[in-house]
Each structure stands twice: as C-alpha cells, then as structure tokens.
C-alpha cells in the first residue's frame, strides 16, 4: 500500500512541478508585453549568453565535426560509400549535432549561471528588495534572460553548424585526402534549406527551455549556499534532460516537413 502511496505522491509532485514550470515560463516569456521592457538587461543577457558562449560552442563544434568525419569515413568505407562523407556529415551537424551540442554547452554554461545568480539574489533578499522598489523581478530578471537565450541560441547554432562543417573539412582534406572544393560543393549542393531551418527552430526552443530551467530553479531556491547549490545542480540537469527529450519530439515532428 505504501508503495502505491509513494508512487502517487511522486507522480502528483512531479505533475505539480511541471505545471508550475509551465506557468513560470508563460509568465516569464510574456510579462514584458504589458511593459516596461528592460532593454539594458536584455542586451546584457544577450551579451553574456550569446557572445560569451561563442568560444565554448565553437570548440565543441570543431572537434565534433572533426571526429564525425573520421567516424563517417571509417563506417562508410565498409560499403565503399566514403565519397558521401561530406553530405552525411553536413546533415548530421546541421540537423542534429549542431543544435543539440550547442544547446547542451549553453545549458551547462548559462542555466547554471542563471540559477546561481537569481538564487543568490533570492536568498539575500535582493528579489524582495526589487519588488519593494516597484520593479517586477519577472520583467527585470526573468523575461530578458528567456528572450535573450531564445534569440541567441539559433545564431549560436548557425555558427556552430559552420564551424562543425569546417572541422569536418579539416580532417577530410588534410587527413583523408578529400579535395577541398569538392567537399564544400557536395555539402552546399546536398543540404536543403529545411535541414538548416529545422535545426534553428530546435535551437530557439532549446534556448527557451534552458533559460526557463535556470530562472525557475534559481527563483525558487531556498536556504543559503546549499540551497543555491542545489538549485544550480537541478537547473543544469533539468535543462540538459529537457533539451534531449524535446529534441526527439521536435525531430519526429520536423522530419515530417
């Protein structure tokens, strides 16, 4: 009997939390509509989330592209299809690895930072202080972060796509004796707009989810350093899991188009 009660309790708790997160996301994404919109906070977030993530996203992309080239070459050699390496690599990067890996890196970098920053503001009463100063924390803290991440991630992914393909280029041309111009032409001719666009749509959704997780767990952190630590950990794990889970569902929807 206790087992069932436990299962029921856990189910109810997780459903309740899902509902709260959804509500939080809606409030966060739309709170600015009734104004004011804090441009300064928005550009600040855009800088820290978008621009400052470039190095880590670029590094991830170039090494992934390079390793992918080796793997595809080795695999396709078994049925003499190695000339298709650029096409396979291009599709893999643009549709799947670019968006997912960039999102995971941003999840690690930014949802943790958001949870820690907002969580510290919560436990040191800075969020309460903001309310007493007639500035809504949702408009000043949450909305700019969610919007900035949602807008920045597609751009980051586009850059990651290019760098990833270039990583594959380096390995193909300098290690596997492909011709550079042919590599580029094959990818350019083979890739369709929808390959790239589906990746960018995914990226926007990932950005929204990552920021929501970081802000939600930070905003609801309790206690002192330990509470903020727990919030940060939960935020990163939750962000990574929702990125991977939503990736599957979005992919299954997007391949239909």
């Amino acid at each position: 009997m206790n087992i069932f009660a436990g299962i029921g309790r856990t189910t109810m708790a997780s459903l309740r939390e899902t509902g709260q997160i959804a509500n939080f996301a809606r409030r966060g994404a739309f709170s600015w509509v009734s104004g004011p919109f804090y441009w300064r906070a928005f550009f600040n977030s855009l800088w820290r989330i978008g621009f400052a993530s470039l190095p880590v996203v670029g590094l991830t992309a170039i090494f992934t592209g390079a390793a992918l080239a080796l793997n595809i070459y080795d695999g396709s050699l078994r049925f003499n299809a190695e000339t298709f390496l650029p096409q396979i690599l291009g599709v893999s990067i643009v549709r799947e690895l670019g968006p997912v890996l960039a999102a995971l890196m941003v999840a690690g970098r930014c949802s943790s930072a958001m949870a820690a920053e907002i969580g510290t503001m919560r436990v040191t009463e800075q969020i309460d202080a903001m309310s007493t100063l007639a500035v809504e924390p949702f408009k000043y803290l949450i909305a700019p972060r969610i919007l900035a991440t949602t807008l920045a991630l597609p751009v980051l992914v586009l850059i990651a796509d290019i760098i990833g393909v270039y990583g594959g280029y380096l390995v193909s041309v300098y290690a596997l004796d492909f011709s550079g111009p042919i590599y580029v032409r094959n990818i350019a001719e083979f890739l369709e707009n929808r390959d790239v666009i589906s990746g960018l749509i995914k990226a926007a959704v990932f950005g929204f989810l990552i920021a929501t997780m970081g802000c939600y767990y930070g905003y609801h952190s309790r206690g002192g350093a330990q509470g903020v630590g727990a919030a940060t950990r939960t935020a990163v794990v939750a962000a990574a899991v929702v990125v991977l889970a939503s990736n599957y569902f979005m992919t299954s929807l997007l391949v239909e188009f």
Binding site: E125, A129, M130, A134
Partner: peptide, 20 residues
C-alpha cells in the same frame, strides 16, 4: 501591491543591495 510599493521603502537586514 503597486499601491503599497509606490508609497513605501524598505531597508533590508542584509541591505540586499544588487551586487551586479
């Protein structure tokens, strides 16, 4: 809430200054 915050100010225990 808007009415109340509009006419009040608070000094918090730990000052609660925005450190950023």
């Amino acid at each position: 809430r808007r009415y109340m915050t509009g006419l009040s100010g608070m000094l918090f225990q730990g000052a609660a200054l925005f450190d950023s």
